[in-house]
Measured scan of single mutants.
Amino acid sequence: NKFNKEMRNAYWEIALLPNLNNQQKRAFIRSLYDDPSQSANLLAEAKKLNDAQA
């Protein structure tokens, strides 16, 4: 399933972002599970926040 693969990839990328705190990571990951079709958008948002907090 395409969404499962995208979701799994996004999950690990988000989990490993160095500048997000655990609460932020959990919120993004919860959103991934709520709507796997938004994986790419959620990952992009997480990366933006990660960069902003660098």
Rank of each mutant, 00 (worst) to 15 (best):
N1F: 02
N1D: 15
K2E: 14
K2M: 08
K2N: 13
K2S: 12
F3Y: 14
F3M: 06
F3D: 13
N4H: 10
N4V: 05
N4M: 05
N4R: 03
N4D: 15
K5G: 05
K5L: 03
K5S: 07
K5F: 03
K5P: 14
K5A: 12
K5M: 03
E6R: 01
E6G: 02
M7V: 11
M7Q: 13
M7W: 11
M7G: 03
M7N: 04
M7D: 02
M7F: 11
R8H: 11
R8S: 11
R8G: 04
N9Y: 15
N9Q: 15
N9K: 15
N9I: 11
N9C: 02
N9M: 13
A10P: 02
A10E: 02
Y11H: 11
Y11T: 13
Y11Q: 14
W12M: 14
W12D: 08
W12T: 14
W12I: 11
W12L: 12
W12A: 13
E13T: 06
E13S: 08
E13I: 13
E13D: 07
I14H: 00
A15P: 01
A15H: 15
A15G: 11
L16S: 14
L16T: 11
L16P: 01
L16Y: 15
L17I: 01
L17V: 00
P18Q: 11
P18R: 09
N19V: 03
N19R: 06
N19P: 00
N19S: 10
N19A: 13
N19L: 09
N19D: 05
L20I: 10
L20H: 00
L20Q: 00
N21Y: 10
N21D: 15
N22I: 09
N22F: 15
N22V: 13
N22T: 11
N22S: 15
Q23K: 07
Q23G: 13
Q23N: 10
Q23I: 14
Q23P: 08
Q24P: 00
Q24E: 10
K25A: 02
K25L: 04
K25Q: 02
K25T: 03
R26T: 06
R26L: 05
R26S: 09
A27C: 02
F28I: 07
F28M: 05
F28V: 03
F28L: 10
I29V: 15
I29D: 00
I29T: 06
I29N: 02
I29K: 07
I29P: 00
R30E: 06
R30Q: 10
S31C: 01
S31W: 11
S31D: 05
L32F: 03
L32Q: 01
L32R: 00
L32V: 06
L32P: 00
L32Y: 02
Y33F: 14
D34W: 09
D34I: 14
D34M: 14
D35C: 03
D35F: 13
D35Q: 10
D35M: 11
P36S: 05
P36G: 05
P36W: 12
P36H: 04
P36L: 08
P36D: 03
P36R: 04
S37A: 07
S37V: 09
S37Y: 09
S37F: 11
S37H: 06
Q38W: 08
Q38I: 09
Q38E: 12
Q38R: 04
Q38K: 12
Q38C: 04
S39V: 09
S39R: 15
S39P: 03
S39A: 13
A40Q: 06
A40C: 03
A40P: 13
A40V: 11
N41Y: 12
N41Q: 15
N41I: 09
N41L: 13
N41G: 08
N41K: 13
L42A: 07
L42N: 03
L42W: 10
L43T: 07
L43A: 12
L43Y: 04
A44S: 14
A44W: 11
A44G: 13
A44Q: 15
E45V: 10
E45W: 10
E45T: 05
E45L: 14
E45K: 11
A46V: 02
A46W: 01
K47F: 08
K47R: 13
K48G: 08
K48W: 11
K48Q: 03
K48T: 11
L49F: 06
L49Y: 06
L49V: 10
L49E: 04
L49K: 07
N50M: 01
N50S: 12
D51L: 14
D51S: 09
D51G: 11
A52M: 14
A52T: 10
A52R: 08
A52P: 03
Q53R: 02
Q53H: 07
Q53F: 10
A54P: 10
A54I: 09
A54E: 11
A54R: 01
A54T: 14
A54G: 08
